[in-house]
Design a protein around this nucleic acid. Sequence first.
DNA 1: CCTTAACTGTGTACGGTCTACACATTGTTT
DNA 2: AAACAATGTGTAGACCGTACACAGTTAAGG
Lengths: 292, 292
Amino acid sequence: MDMASDGDLPRGIALAWGVAANPQRGPKRELSLEGIVDAAVQIADADGLGAVSMSSVATALGYTTMSLYRYVSAKDDLILLMQEAGIGLPPSSIGEAENWRDGLTRWYRTVLTVFDAHPWLLDIPVDSEPNTPNNLGWLDAGLGALADTPLAQTERVSAMLMLSGQSRWEGQILRTQASDGMPADALAELITPEQFPFLAPAIAAGSFSDGEPEAFEFGLLRILDGLELHMTELSAGRSGTVSKPDDDREFAKDENVKKAAARVKDADAKLRDARQKHREAVTKAREKSKTP
Amino acid sequence: MDMASDGDLPRGIALAWGVAANPQRGPKRELSLEGIVDAAVQIADADGLGAVSMSSVATALGYTTMSLYRYVSAKDDLILLMQEAGIGLPPSSIGEAENWRDGLTRWYRTVLTVFDAHPWLLDIPVDSEPNTPNNLGWLDAGLGALADTPLAQTERVSAMLMLSGQSRWEGQILRTQASDGMPADALAELITPEQFPFLAPAIAAGSFSDGEPEAFEFGLLRILDGLELHMTELSAGRSGTVSKPDDDREFAKDENVKKAAARVKDADAKLRDARQKHREAVTKAREKSKTP
DNA sequence: CCTTAACTGTGTACGGTCTACACATTGTTT
DNA sequence: AAACAATGTGTAGACCGTACACAGTTAAGG
């Protein structure tokens, strides 16, 4: 049973994939990787990533700090495994979307739900691309939503990369808004029209302090629109999958453009509805959890 | 001279705006905020944000650790000021763009240049929205590029928010690619078609390891396209600035859609050219700096 | 001028972080 | 039975940020 195809991957990644030559010689292990990661996740959920220390995790488990190092080679490993555990696997509902727009929208919204449940995920620095099963599972789910589109493989990956960044960004910004910390009106005095000719009017119009969820809704719609437009170009330009979209290609036929635009409008409305419902659901759930 | 309109802003922000009631009573100050921040930035440029400690900064200046606390109330303050200094003010060239697409593209590319020069900027967590002069200066520059568009004020801010996130994301990803750390071909074995039905083909097609700058080029183009399409809708729907784009509005006239699509195609080509030139310039500059 | 009060830079000390290493103990393998 | 590997533990070291007391410097108020 030579299951150890560990090669020489970074230790943490090998652990994440479950390929780790665990030994038979010593005394029985009293702890487990999962248990450690679970404990760490619980601490992070409760008090943030900053509260996760080797000491705190070990204490929560009733063991000593150094015992953890028999399961994890360094704290960075633990963090990586926490990330993997926290992000989890995408729900199957993403694959049941009717079209790619719906699919990507579900994908995006689900990611945000996860970030809302585990805000500390956003505190983990993106050192190396996390080539771990669950993270790749999310990527796979996103690519699945794009399976029936005329996008080239590279473009699909690019699209998911873009969407990942956007979701992360929204998660981070929404979190800062929750922690607040700025008088806002005190700041308005500092922003003079001379120094900020374009920003000052925007603030005067009140387009700054509030409406952040709407801002990202806007952003997502633009991204989807941009993708849709590009797809229309592609399918009009050539049949089949275009591997090199850099080539000169015929531009979209008028009908296609119109169709795309119509679909865009439709999707906009649907998305707004879905978002609204989601927001209400979240609000209701929060109220419920306050008075159990 | 009641210049101290400090109110009760967070200490760090007050410092960033230069409004800080500095005293007259004590002995002459031997250090300065700027000097401290400069030293910290130099350390971060050289050895990363992790190398910036109160001790290291103080040592670089030839003073004791605790002396810094006479200028900065906590390390977080210093970090905030470093961020502000590192991001700097946007170059005026952004305002000289011919159209909004060009303007936003310049904005985006310039931000990435800054991130390339000060990678540690991306290691600073986004705790609270940085309401500091330089950061708002970038926002102002971006809004300026959108000044002649039919976008509502809120939408302009949303667009810049989106672009900020994307630039940050690209900066982060490009950085991880530089530090590498993954065998890539060893990973290919783990990604089975059963577990990753959509990702496996993508990897087999080679659309994963390489081509990351192109991925973000793609992303930026989609965002700009999406914005453009939305503008077309807006200008066709109503005259003047629409404050509530959620209302039901007439959809774009066919001619407008076509025009937008044509402009999109045009801008794509231009952007590709510009990017190519930029890339060459960067490469040349790097070679030059290797053999001075 | 002299006192008072504010401010400076410094030194010490405390609690916290991660982890390298030596240690006795436990279990399997030879 | 002997060799050996792996376990959990305790100690210790090198950092980190910063609270606090201290002596010295400067300006303001009388």
